[in-house]
């Protein structure tokens, strides 16, 4: 990443300060730590409201969360293709090997 992206302009500095110091607001860094619990529905109501307020105000976090959720969906679908159907194979030789090993 370009180093200048890390050094914010005046507008981003002001926004950062606002989110850091205004009541009911959180910074993007704090937002990050809530994502998992938010998606699991385990954020307490007050934190949930704060999270959703940030989401309304912050284009970057909105885009990030959308891509994060899309990633989860893609991973799930790629690894567990619905057209694969349920796994149903228990190879007979493997069953026998497992049971034989137990008797020893």
């Amino acid at each position: 990443m370009a180093a200048d992206q890390r050094r914010p302009g005046i507008m981003r500095q002001m926004r950062g300060a606002m989110m850091k110091y205004m009541p009911l607001m959180i910074t993007c860094v704090e937002f990050e730590t809530f994502i998992l619990d938010y998606l699991e529905g385990s954020l307490p109501p007050r934190q949930r409201r704060i999270f959703e307020l940030h989401l309304k105000m912050c284009r970057e976090c909105r885009d990030y969360l959308a891509a994060y959720k899309a990633t989860m969906g893609v991973a799930k679908r790629a690894l567990k293709d619905p057209s694969d159907g349920p796994p149903d194979d228990a190879p007979e030789d493997l069953v026998k090997a497992v049971l034989a090993a137990r008797e020893r």
């Binding site: 990443m1 992206q5 890390r6 914010p8 993007c28 990050e32 912050c58 970057e60 976090c61």
Partner: peptide
Amino acid sequence: PEFDTSACRIEA
């Protein structure tokens, strides 16, 4: 994820 020094997210 990346953030600038004022804790704002960097996301295209």
